[in-house]
Write a protein that binds this DNA or RNA. Structure first.
Lengths: 246, 246
DNA sequence: TATAGTTGTCTATGTCAATAGACATTTGGA
DNA sequence: TCCAAATGTCTATTGACATAGACAACTATA
């Protein structure tokens, strides 16, 4: 650490204002500015990061765009929103339950659905024949009106014929399963990786491009161990964390 | 998807060459080019991503810098390295065991160590008094000579007095614990998040700036449930994935 | 041994990112 | 009411990013 500067990297292909925006967003999520409810003054941040004030302003404007801060002339830059949802991952992982008390309003939107033939990968995950019919659901989950995950799920089509309608009605996989007679299911495995957000996810999750997504690939099975759902979910990395309790 | 273009984002604060480098790196890791052992020609990539050939070249040069590809005039751009290590996270999670057969050589380096007083956070995690003495170890783990994680660990200092030497000798936390009489320990909880790499991590993990890190915060305890280690580890997101088996 | 296919190099141009400085405007408190 | 502190706006300059086109150099193979 030379002269107290925090680390930002030039010529890395990631603009300084974006690096700084990410750092400030993280600091807000970690509660570092809770004492004042404000981000430090632009001049101070510029000094801390070793950049020009205008560069800090670009970063703050990006955060304002996301609705995380609001700049008020004369007063400072106020923190509007500060949340990091925690998702426990366990044998009984369920999305809505996972959010629990962390949000008042929970919502599940069906963006798209299709009935198609299982690719080699999906067939392998669901332990069915390649080409067997599967249902694919594209869903968006929200907590307190803010999008927190974008999922693509596959289900064996024969077993869960009315699933699309059941999900649309309830906004919950668990409820949809129950409506189709599957009372209980268990998480078999969860893979976690991270990527840069792109494409439709950016728009759906209301992120600024370049944001980081946590990606989970999850397999759920019924109590006999027969796979019932394979899901790839993307979460904004600055809004969530996963907890694995053993 | 308009005209088959893959999604890259302009004016996002993340340079196009970096977005493309990340995508190609991921495609290599996913084995998409295994048939040829080569990345597609620059012209084709440029077309796919909807950018100029020079932009693709910048991306490939970054990957060459990382040792992932090697361009050969007249032949193409050959894939040099292609790996994604899988780390199972369970009650018995251990780093060296986790790598298992995925690498021949495993190595644990002690970068730095210190004896200091527990901050509020560390004291809370280890369930000790604030200000109580703790040992902090900065370690770097390698598999087949390539760095795969950078960890900062805290231990109760009184219980594990000779730990620093024991770790330096063995390069393994498990072995160091055993040398100090702790035969067994269990993973209590693991939190997973993701950030942009910065600072010392960049250098230690030999990444190009802007790369994504998966971050785990793990708590280990002895068989009585008394915390023995709290560790914050950073893994290059394009080289690893975590698997939670239930 | 041509030739198609591929990477390497060069020049040129426009846009975005970052710095620099000056000054206006608003707020809250002395 | 005045002043310090903070954000808002403007102009100007430099370097990195991205595009465009042309051509050189190398490789494999028909």
């Amino acid at each position: 650490m030379d002269s107290g500067h925090q680390n930002v990297h030039r010529q890395s292909g990631v603009a300084l204002w974006r690096q700084i925006a990410d750092r400030i967003r993280m600091s807000i999520a970690n509660g570092e500015y809770d004492a004042t409810g404000k981000v430090p003054p632009e001049m101070l941040l510029a000094e801390q990061f070793g950049v020009n004030r205008h560069t800090v302003r670009s970063a703050l404007q990006a955060l304002a765009q996301e609705g995380i801060v609001r700049a008020v002339q004369g007063r400072g830059t106020l923190i509007e929103r500060k949340e990091r949802l925690n998702f426990p991952i366990s044998r009984r992982t369920r999305f809505s339950q996972g959010i629990g008390e962390q949000a008042r309003e929970k919502e599940g939107l069906l963006l798209d659905s299709a009935r198609l033939s299982a690719s080699a990968e999906i067939a392998g995950r669901l332990a069915i024949e390649i080409g067997a019919p599967v249902l694919r659901l594209e869903t968006l989950r929200k907590a307190d009106r803010r999008p927190v995950s974008r999922s693509t799920s596959w289900f064996p089509a024969e077993r869960f014929a009315g699933l699309i309608e059941a999900y649309r009605d309830s906004g919950s996989i668990t409820a949809a399963f129950q409506a189709l007679g599957l009372q209980d299911y268990l998480r078999v495995s969860t893979e976690v990786t991270a990527i840069h957000a792109d494409g439709a996810d950016l728009a759906d999750l209301q992120l600024s491009p370049g944001a980081i997504l946590l990606v989970t690939k999850a397999l759920n099975a019924d109590s006999e161990g027969v796979p019932v759902q394979y899901a790839v979910s993307r979460f904004p990395a600055d809004m969530v964390q996963f907890t694995i309790e053993n």
